Amino acid sequence: MMTGRLHPYLPELTIRDYNTYLRYRRGVKYQLYLEYGLFAFSLLRCKGAGAALALLSDSLAGRQATCQEIRLPGSLERVPVMCQTRGIRLAAQIEVLMSWHRLQDRRPAELPLRLKVQRLIQRMALYRAYRKAVQEEPALERIFYQQRAQAVAQHQLRGQNYAVASEPMSNVYGALFSVLAPDDAVQRKNMRYIGSCIGKAFYLLDKAARHHLDQKEDRYNVFLANGLSGEAAKENARRQAIAAINDLSRVYTLMDVKLNRTLLDNIMVLGLRDTVDPLEHGSWDLNWELPS
C-alpha cells in the first residue's frame, strides 16, 4: 500500500503551504506518539501520506488546526506542530492500520530469515497500537479484512482483468477517503470515488514495479497474467494510472475545500500526476526527504 506516494509537488509549492504541510506531518507523527506510544512513533515512517489525509479531512470540514511549539521524541529542538484535530487523529489511526496490514502483504515462508525476524519484531512492537486503532475504527478494519480475502481469491484465479485485479485496493482507498469527508452524502460519495481512483492507480504502479520479482517468485501479477514484459507493464500501468488520476481530478475540482485549497490542489493534482508521470521527466527525485 503506497500512501507514501501521496505528497506535494515541491517545485510548485509556496513557502506558506510548505510550512503548513510540514506542520501537519509533524502533527501526525506527534499524534502517533501520544496515542500509540514510542514504538509506533519510531516504527512508522509517516513520510507524507498521513499529512495529506489529515489536511483533506480538516480542510473539507473547515477545521482550523492550532499550531504549537513542541519537542518531538528524539529531538532537542522545539518545532511548530499542528495539534490534535480530528483529521490528524484519523490520519494517525490510518497510518497504524495500513502499516499493520502492510506487514501482512507477504507470507512469512516467502521471506528470507533476516526479514522474517525483522517482520516479527515489527509486528510485536506494533500490535498494541494496532489493537487500539481497531477499537477506535472497527469499520475500517472490517474493510481491510474483506478486501484482503477478495485479493487472495483473485490471486488464486490469476485473472487478466485489470479493473477486477485492482478492485480490493481501490475499495480500501475508497473507504479510507470517505471516512475523511465531513458528514455530507455528496462529499462522502465524491471522496470515495477519489480514493478508489488513487487505489487503482497505486495498485497498477505497484504491480508494474514488482513485475520481475513476482515473475521470479511465481507470484500472481496481473501484467504477467496478460503476458506483458517488464517495460510493457510499466507503460501500461502508467497509461491506466494517468487515466485514473484524470478521472479523480475532475471530481476533486467539485469538492468544497474550505481551507488550504492551494496546498491540496498541489497534492491532489500536481503531486499525483508527478507520481504517475514525472512532470520534469525524471529530474525531480521523488524519494527526496522533507526535513522533520
Rank of each mutant, 00 (worst) to 15 (best):
F177W: 15
F177H: 07
F177E: 01
S178D: 10
S178N: 04
S178A: 15
S178E: 15
V179M: 12
V179E: 14
L180E: 05
L180A: 04
A181G: 04
A181I: 02
A181Y: 06
P182Y: 03
P182W: 09
D183R: 12
D183L: 11
D184I: 01
D184Q: 12
D184P: 03
D184E: 14
D184M: 08
A185P: 03
A185Q: 14
A185K: 13
A185E: 15
A185T: 13
V186D: 11
V186T: 14
V186A: 12
V186R: 13
V186Y: 10
Q187V: 08
Q187W: 05
R188W: 03
R188V: 00
R188P: 01
K189N: 11
K189D: 10
N190C: 11
N190D: 12
N190T: 08
N190R: 15
N190E: 11
M191I: 02
R192V: 02
R192T: 01
R192D: 04
R192W: 09
Y193F: 15
Y193K: 09
Y193M: 06
Y193E: 07
I194R: 01
I194T: 07
I194F: 01
G195E: 06
G195V: 01
S196W: 11
S196E: 10
C197D: 02
C197H: 05
I198V: 15
I198N: 01
I198P: 00
I198W: 00
G199M: 09
G199S: 09
G199W: 04
K200M: 12
K200I: 02
K200R: 15
A201S: 12
A201D: 04
A201M: 01
F202S: 07
Y203K: 06
Y203Q: 14
L204E: 00
L204F: 06
L205W: 03
L205Y: 09
D206T: 08
D206G: 09
D206S: 10
D206R: 09
K207P: 03
K207S: 13
A208C: 10
A208T: 06
A208L: 06
A209W: 04
R210A: 13
R210L: 09
R210Y: 03
R210D: 14
R210I: 02
R210N: 13
H211T: 03
H211N: 08
H211I: 00
H211F: 03
H212N: 11
H212A: 10
H212R: 12
H212V: 08
H212S: 12
L213W: 10
L213V: 14
L213Y: 12
L213F: 07
D214L: 08
D214P: 07
D214Q: 10
D214N: 08
Q215M: 11
Q215G: 15
K216P: 00
K216L: 13
K216Q: 15
E217F: 08
E217K: 15
E217T: 09
E217C: 06
E217M: 11
E217Y: 11
E217H: 13
R219Q: 14
R219P: 04
R219N: 12
N221I: 02
N221K: 04
N221D: 07
